[in-house]
Amino acid sequence: ALSDYRQHARQRRDLVRLIYNSDLTPQQIAHGEAAPNKDKDDADDDDDFFKIKSSADTQVVTISDRTKEPTASLDEWNDEVMLDSIRPLFITGDSTRPVNDLDAEAGVEGDGEE
């Protein structure tokens, strides 16, 4: 639980820091949410300096001025299991089952909320 909390605190600090104090593009930050710090020196208790990305991998991605995001692949919804996985988000769904637990079928209950 403590390590969970730590991880949490870290994520929080990171997001604010990345948004307001880094040169990463918004897209890099948004993608990083899925896989934070994919650089190899991903040490645990890092209070290190900002990682400077080499200019090679900071390609300029423009957000441009549009409201609709370019459509990502929607093929995942051809899968019945995927469709079933969002049932809890509807009033008719079973709310005791958390969403996104596809890969953690067994024993998901009993987690404290913090």
Partner: peptide
Amino acid sequence: SSAHGRPIQVLRDIRDVFGTS
């Protein structure tokens, strides 16, 4: 979360213009 990052740009622009974080 947004995969596109546009809200992040809005956050930055708000900070730049209004000074609000």
